[in-house]
């Protein structure tokens, strides 16, 4: 077998590659389901039903997709500029901490003022968390994969300290959790009585904004140019380090919004299980979306559907819901292979 670079990628491949990738991951998952002693089609049917089969299921999927859209956009915008931000998790918690600090009564403001303020302040915290590793990268060549990844654990431990100490809810029966945010800091529900909240709309709006910035503004142009070829960007007169800073602020801010949105829209307070790895899943989402901001929305819903559907399925079919992790992971791997086909042609010989 030989790989040969493609001179041009036909348009249908951009559509076919992700679909084929997801199909391939389903086939692999089917084998595992059979191994677990269940009927693959029945299981997939239950997953689909559990994720999309009722109003409740659909809203639950979109609720779960909301933080993934934020962290997916954060990863997409950073990766496009070749800034490998693996610290989405830390930035998410940074945003959540700010939301709790300012939203639990410290700022007694009406909702229309307080909510935007919480998002901005949270985004600021996340941006700062990525700024440090980015400066270390541009100034001293420190690998940002290492620094951002390790920062996740540092921040998580720091949050743990806050929840055991200064931010601990006195009424929390000793649980490591913060106080609840005040009424004015809570995001309104989109449908009365359901869990889906305004955060989803904000996430979609952010995707549109990121798309616009990428496609139409000089900022987006610079970020792409620097990502593709920093040497050429520098030659053309772009300030590569400064562009990297902008990317860091943007990416860190978006990831942090996931934390603000989860605290103010869904959970109401901060706990150590606020994020079951949304920061890391955002990377998967971004890759599945081929770093396209609107693709991030679709990929987030797909990944969320897998998790929500698998939960419902495991209750009925007895197959562990870890199958969702396997499917998302294989989807990522098959997607990477699919991307290979868009760049190379394969000769079987």
């Amino acid at each position: 077998m030989r790989l040969e670079p493609r001179v041009e990628t036909p348009f249908y491949l951009w559509i076919a590659a992700p679909i084929a990738a997801i199909a391939a991951s389903l086939v692999i998952a089917a084998l595992l389901v059979m191994w677990a002693g269940a009927e693959p089609f029945a299981v997939f049917g239950l997953v689909a039903k559990g994720a999309l089969g009722s109003q409740f299921a659909l809203l639950e999927t979109l609720t779960r997709a909301t933080p993934l859209i934020f962290t997916g956009l954060a990863a997409a915008i950073a990766f496009r500029a070749r800034l490998w931000n693996i610290g989405g998790e830390a930035q998410l918690y940074g945003g959540a901490v700010l939301a709790v600090l300012l939203g639990t009564g410290f700022l007694p403001l009406p909702a229309p003022v307080l909510v935007p303020l919480l998002f901005i302040a949270g985004a600021f915290a996340g941006a700062l968390l990525l700024l440090g590793p980015t400066m270390l990268k541009t100034r001293f060549g420190v690998d940002e994969v290492v620094t951002t990844l390790l920062l996740n654990f540092i921040i998580l431990l720091f949050v743990s300290f806050l929840l055991e100490g200064p931010l601990k809810d006195p009424m929390g029966l000793g649980w490591p959790q913060s106080r609840r945010v005040i009424e004015a800091a809570q995001l309104p529900r989109i449908i009365e009585g359901k869990r889906l909240h305004l955060g989803f709309v904000i996430a979609i709006a952010m995707a549109a904004i990121v798309w616009f910035v990428n496609a139409r503004t000089t900022h987006g142009y610079e970020m792409r140019a620097v990502g593709f070829n920093p040497k050429a960007a520098r030659f053309a007169g772009m300030k590569v380090d400064w562009v990297m800073m902008k990317v860091a602020l943007f990416s860190g801010g978006l990831a942090a919004m996931a934390g603000v949105s989860e605290v103010t829209g869904l959970k109401g307070n901060l706990t150590l299980d606020l994020s079951p790895g949304f920061g890391y899943s955002g990377i998967v989402v971004a890759m599945l979306a081929m770093l396209h901001p609107l693709g991030v929305v679709a990929a987030s819903i797909f990944v969320a559907a897998m998790f929500v559907g698998a939960d419902a399925m495991s209750r009925q079919a007895g197959v562990p819901n870890y199958i969702a992790h396997v499917m998302v992971a294989t989807a990522l791997l098959t997607m990477v292979v699919g991307m290979l086909f868009t760049r190379f042609r394969v000769h079987w010989r």
């Binding site: 792409r224 140019a225 593709f228 070829n229 040497k231 050429a232 960007a233 030659f235």
Partner: peptide, 9 residues
């Protein structure tokens, strides 16, 4: 290739 142009753009 490396400096004059950005090949992927």
């Amino acid at each position: 290739h490396a400096v004059g142009l950005i090949g992927d753009m």
